Amino acid sequence: MRLPICLCLLLFMMPAAAEPASASVERLHAALLESMRGGVQMSCAQRLQLLDAAVGDSFDVAGLARLVLRRHWASLDRRQQATFVELLRRNIGLNYAQHFARHAGERFETTGETAVETAADGQRRVSARLLAADAEPVSFDYVLTPSGDSWRIVNVFADGVSDVALRRSQYDSVVGRQGVAALLEQAAAQNEDLLRRCNQASRTGESG
């Protein structure tokens, strides 16, 4: 009788299964829709508070930073790495705040989840669409990596265009020509410009 009892105890002690990768994506989408529905009643500061939290919950920003800088990552000291990760996190939130600030009936639809066969760390790809009554659907493909019992986004494809590839091209050019210090300065300046636009849009009722 010992064996069945032991088996029951083992089953009871096993950790709960990890949530699907799509759950992380859908939490992000819920925050984006909340930002859109807030419209002109939501200030820039309120929108960023919402979206910064969503980015922190859904993205592996440190992993994304390493991906976009590639060989340049090792040339940053620890303080510079931490600064770049924070600038990147802020940049993602600011970009979402600019583009998801008004709602006209749009909704997100998750269309699939598959394994990334070329990845060695169990990555998943989640596909989704942003649907609107008066525009063509926008397709999104998210690449997520496991993180404990959940998943974190490390790349986003919008209509087939990779965010990582775009950022790599931009950052490689800056670091190659001007160095790491210039990269951090330009990233901070870009965030300041996005913040200015966010505040201006809140005052005028416009969106990016």
Rank of each mutant, 00 (worst) to 15 (best):
S127I: 01
V61P: 00
F157W: 12
A115L: 07
A53H: 09
D121P: 08
L69M: 05
L131Y: 05
L33V: 14
A135W: 06
D77W: 04
D77L: 04
S43P: 00
A31R: 05
R89I: 06
L88D: 08
E113A: 04
W73T: 07
R66S: 14
L69K: 07
H99P: 08
Q81I: 07
R124V: 04
R71S: 15
D121V: 10
E109N: 11
A115C: 07
Y142N: 02
G39N: 01
V55W: 05
R129N: 10
A53M: 03
Q46R: 11
L69P: 00
Y142P: 02
R47C: 05
A120I: 08
L48K: 04
G39R: 07
A45M: 05
D163L: 15
A101F: 10
A97V: 10
E34S: 15
L64G: 11
S58D: 09
V154F: 03
H72E: 15
E106K: 06
G39Q: 04
D60C: 03
G112F: 00
A119Q: 14
V156N: 02
Q41H: 10
R78E: 15
A158Y: 08
E86T: 14
L130P: 00
L32F: 07
S43C: 00
F108I: 04
G112W: 00
Q98G: 14
L33M: 15
L130Y: 12
R107M: 06
R125W: 03
G56V: 03
A82H: 09
E106G: 02
Y96Q: 07
S162F: 00
R66M: 13
A45Y: 02
F157L: 14
T110S: 13
G105V: 12
A128G: 11
Q49K: 12
A45C: 04
A132S: 15
A97P: 02
S58P: 13
L64W: 11
R47N: 03
R152F: 08
S127L: 00
G63E: 06
A65F: 05
A53F: 01
S150R: 14
L87H: 10
W73L: 04
C44G: 14
R129A: 13
L144F: 08
T118D: 14
G112T: 01
R78T: 11
L32H: 02
F59H: 06
D52F: 11
L28G: 03
N95R: 13
Q81R: 11
G93W: 06
